[in-house]
């Protein structure tokens, strides 16, 4: 184990909080691995030992879990993890072209990190945003309706240190480590940033509004008025 004392102590403090969320300590392993990534930028061998120690598991049991899930990186990740969805629908809607463009632009292959440690590029599987295809995830924040040009522009902006806002997410794209800390269950105070929903998400509701379509009202004598009947202002 080779964390310095300060790092080790703060990891132990955070880990205790994570473990306390669950009836059984072992349930904390995924958030603890995210926590390790928030410190080391990947699941380091030290992190594996830390998690094993914390949960009373063997390192083999911990790496068995860590290597099962794709979000856990075995190499130091870039400050920005760029995931281009290339599952079928996004792929044909432009994901393939975006991925190819980024691959050339960054000069790296799937899973690699640029020499300056800034970007890791990867092909990712469907990220549940198909109505915004093609989709890119930067540090697991949504970048909807992308094009090769917008993807390159994103890289340029990040390289230039300009703030970049995800389509549906916080005002400014956090770093990989910062977001990993959120995934470990430690809020970063940015939940109230960003829109309620994106454009595609509300199309059905808007169409219904436009056409005057609605679900039947709750029968009289219900416990409360149906929801959403007042304050209809939409963004």
């Amino acid at each position: 184990m080779s964390y310095d004392t300060g790092t080790r102590q703060s990891l132990e403090r955070d880990a205790a909080q994570v473990v306390a969320r669950y009836p059984k300590p072992r349930s904390a392993i995924l958030p603890l691995l995210h926590l390790v990534q928030s410190v080391d930028g990947f699941v380091s061998p030290d992190g594996i030992e830390f998690v094993a120690d914390t949960l009373g598991m063997t390192t083999s049991e911990v790496s068995a879990v860590a290597t099962f899930y794709t979000q856990f990186k075995r190499q130091p990740n870039g400050t920005y993890n760029l995931g281009v969805c290339t599952t079928a629908l996004c792929a044909i809607m432009g994901g393939d072209a975006i991925y190819e463009r980024l691959r050339e632009y960054l000069g790296i292959e799937d899973g690699q990190t640029t020499g300056d440690g800034m970007f890791t590029l990867e092909r990712i599987e469907c990220n549940a945003a198909c109505d915004y295809a093609p989709v890119m995830m930067a540090n697991w924040e949504f970048f909807d309706n992308q094009t090769p040009e917008s993807a390159v522009a994103l890289v340029d902006a990040l390289r230039a240190g300009k703030p970049v806002a995800p389509t549906r997410g916080p005002d400014k794209l956090p770093t990989f480590k910062e977001n990993e800390r959120v995934l470990a269950g430690f809020p970063d105070g940015k939940a109230d940033q960003g829109a309620s929903a994106g454009e595609s998400s509300v199309r059905g509701a808007e169409l219904a509004d436009e056409k005057g379509w609605a679900a039947p009202p709750y029968p009289a004598g219900g416990a409360a008025a149906p929801k959403g009947t007042k304050g209809e202002e939409r963004k």
Binding site: S196, V202, A205, A208, K235
Partner: peptide, 19 residues
């Protein structure tokens, strides 16, 4: 058939996620 927003009804509202 017409649409019947119940779950999606509030999605477009400002601060819809707030208590």
């Amino acid at each position: 058939t017409t649409l019947t927003p119940v779950l999606t009804k509030r999605w477009g509202k400002a601060n819809s996620w707030r208590l």
